[in-house]
């Protein structure tokens, strides 16, 4: 299944991830947790996009459902694991209902339908003030206990929460990996390639897509359920459609034809984002040297790191067609071939 190099990369990464808390500063550990959770979110999105060929623009709805349900329960002193479980189930149940309707269409119609459903969920979260806190969201989510008797963790600390996230995310990724490499996963790819042919091979394509939608929703719910206790807040922005574009960007950046593509994309994206946020002063200096820019804009030094992020993402996406991971792999194979030819 894997070649030796891939096994080594996987083993080293997992080992490294478990050892990181000894080396990294709390800030970097927070960053790493964010990468893990957003990576899982992007992977769950790619089950629909890369494998099934369905572009969802409303995937944030399931992330937010997980985040709000878990956040609400934990805030009302439920054990964390119970909150996570409830968050996953709530997201999966929502995906069962909305997915049933969404998979009746495909291509751009599917994208628009998921976008509309996503905004419905956003509106509900924004308006249902008694439960969700409206525009403020649910704040002050502090984990008091894990939910396993006998195990007490200082979950307020970053490293304990990091380990919990790491274990659950690695398990979820393994689950997704098995699903995508199972007979079911092969049929998903076939439905992406030619849904009509698959129907005439005897497969109920709509049911297949529906199940994929529920699985993707549940996984996004897990990422969200881990997100709100980590951020200690569940705010309505994570339900907004603009948040749904994050996994889209990450996945395209990393490469949607590879299982690990969204993970690579999430790492790059979040890494760039934080690097820009802390270093945007340099960019402003550089911009100030450009002749055509109005002085007032440069002097204001607005918080425009998104602009720079866009400027950096553009060459990355244009320069690595098929995603960074696929391009790196291709480069590696090319080098290898050159070397074996010269010998």
């Amino acid at each position: 299944m894997f070649n030796r190099l891939q096994w080594i990369i996987i083993a080293v990464s997992i080992l490294g991830l478990f050892l990181f808390p000894w080396f990294l500063s709390p800030f970097n550990l927070v960053l790493l947790t964010e990468i893990l959770l957003m990576g899982l979110f992007a992977l769950s999105f790619n089950l629909l996009f890369g494998y099934t060929g369905l572009l969802s623009f409303g995937h944030a709805a399931y992330f937010a459902t997980g985040a709000y349900v878990c956040g609400y329960l934990v805030k009302h002193s439920a054990p964390l694991l119970l909150g996570i479980l409830a968050g996953v189930i709530a997201a999966a149940v929502l995906a069962t209902g909305l997915g049933y309707l969404s998979v009746r269409l495909d291509r751009i119609y599917f994208a628009m339908l998921t976008l509309a459903f996503g905004m419905m969920v956003y509106t509900i979260i924004f308006q249902w003030r008694e439960v969700t806190g409206g525009s403020d969201g649910i704040t002050g989510i502090f984990v008091t206990n894990l939910g396993i008797p006998g195990i007490e963790l200082k979950l307020q600390g970053f490293s304990a929460y990091y380990y919990l996230s790491l274990i659950l995310v690695v398990l979820a990724i393994y689950l997704l990996w098995r699903i995508t490499h199972s007979p079911f996963g092969e049929l998903l790819q076939a439905s992406r390639e030619n849904a009509q042919r698959l129907l005439f091979v005897g497969i109920n394509v709509r049911q297949l897509r529906w199940i994929a939608f529920i699985l993707a929703g549940g996984m996004a719910g897990l990422a969200g359920a881990l997100w709100s206790p980590f951020q200690r807040v569940a705010n309505p922005e994570i339900a907004h459609w603009t948040f749904s574009t994050t996994p889209v960007l990450m996945t395209i950046l990393g490469g949607y034809h590879r299982f690990a593509g969204p993970l690579v994309g999430a790492t790059l994206f979040i890494g760039l984002e934080h690097w820009l946020q802390s270093n945007q002063g340099y960019f402003w200096q550089w911009l100030a040297g450009l002749p055509l820019l109005p002085d007032t804009l440069v002097e204001s030094q607005l918080n425009l790191w998104h602009l720079f992020l866009g400027l950096l993402l553009l060459p990355l996406i244009l320069g690595f067609p098929g995603g960074v991971l696929a391009s790196v792999e291709k480069l590696g194979k090319f080098r290898f071939r050159q070397r074996s030819q010269s010998q």
């Binding site: 299944m1 007979p183 079911f184 092969e186 790819q189 076939a190 030619n194 698959l198 297949l208």
Partner: peptide, 30 residues
């Protein structure tokens, strides 16, 4: 009408999965 980006073996395997009713097998490595 085929599955263009899959290999020949995968194309046929898709049909065999259908015949052997393994469409709900989420776990076996294909």
């Amino acid at each position: 009408s085929i599955f263009p980006n899959l290999t020949v073996a995968q194309n046929i395997r898709v049909a065999v999965i259908s015949l052997q009713r393994k469409q709900f097998d989420f776990w076996t490595k294909v």
